[in-house]
Amino acid sequence: MDCNKTKFRLAASIKNLMGEMSLDKIIVKDIVAGCGLTRQTFYRNFRDKYDLVNWYFEKLVQQSFEEMGVSLTLREGLTKKFQFIREEKVFFTCAFGSSDYNSLVKYDYEYILKFYRNILQEKFNKPLEEDVEFLLQMYCQGSIQMTVDWVKTGMKFEPEKMADLLIQALPKKLNSLLYFLEM
C-alpha cells in the first residue's frame, strides 16, 4: 500500500476518534482499529499519535506556506491556513487541547518559526541578528497562542480577519523585514 494512503487512513481514523474524545485519551489500538491497519503499520509511519497529528497538520498547511511570497501574499497564506483550520474544526479543537510535550501547539510554533527564519535568512543571505530572532520567537509564540484561543473560543473571527490581526501584530522591525511577502 502507498505510504501516503496509509498515513491518510490513519489520519482519518484519529480525526473520527477526536470527535468522540480528547487526543490525550486516544490510544494507538483505537486508531488502527478504526482503519483496519496494524500497530506495526502505525509505528512504521509514526512515532506516536502526536507525530500523526503533526504530520496531518503539516499536510493541511504546507501548500499555503510554500506559496507564501511566491504566488500568495502573507495575508493570503495566513487566510488559507485559517480556512484549513476552520474546515477541520473538530481536528484542531481536539489537537490544540492537548498539553503533551509533543503537542500540535509546540509543533506549529516550531514549524512557523522555521518557516519565517528560513525566509529571512534566504532574503538577507545571513543568520538572523539576535534582536530579530527574539522578535520572531515572540511573534510566533503569540500568533500560535492567538490561533489556539481562536479555535477554542469557536472561531468567531473570519479567517481573513485573523490574518489581518496577525499581520497588524507583527513587531515594526519584523514587519519591515517581511514586507516583501505582501507584494
Rank of each mutant, 00 (worst) to 15 (best):
S103Y: 03
T38N: 07
A95C: 11
N118V: 10
R47H: 11
G154N: 04
E133F: 00
I26H: 08
F134K: 00
C35W: 11
T73G: 14
S103K: 05
T153Q: 06
I85V: 13
M146G: 02
L104C: 06
E160A: 13
K89G: 02
L74K: 09
P159K: 00
E158K: 10
Q40F: 07
S71R: 15
E129P: 02
D30W: 08
G36E: 08
F157C: 04
V90K: 09
S103G: 09
E88Y: 12
A169E: 00
V61M: 07
E110M: 07
S71D: 15
S99A: 12
K114V: 01
G154A: 07
L120D: 01
I167L: 11
R86I: 01
N54M: 07
N118H: 13
E87V: 03
E110R: 08
T93M: 05
K126G: 01
N102L: 05
M138N: 09
A163Q: 01
I27G: 14
Y111R: 07
T153C: 03
D100Y: 14
E158P: 00
V53P: 02
N125I: 08
L52I: 09
F124G: 01
L52G: 06
G97E: 07
T73Y: 12
E66Y: 14
C140R: 00
L135P: 00
S143H: 02
P127G: 06
I85S: 01
G36C: 11
L78S: 04
Y109F: 13
Y101T: 12
F115D: 00
K126C: 09
L128D: 00
R75G: 13
V32C: 09
F57E: 11
Q145F: 11
R117T: 12
L165E: 08
M155V: 07
F124N: 10
W150K: 07
D164Q: 14
L165A: 12
M138F: 11
F46Y: 03
T38V: 09
V151S: 05
I85K: 02
Y109E: 00
V53T: 06
I27W: 08
D149M: 12
Q145G: 09
E122H: 15
C140S: 13
A163Y: 02
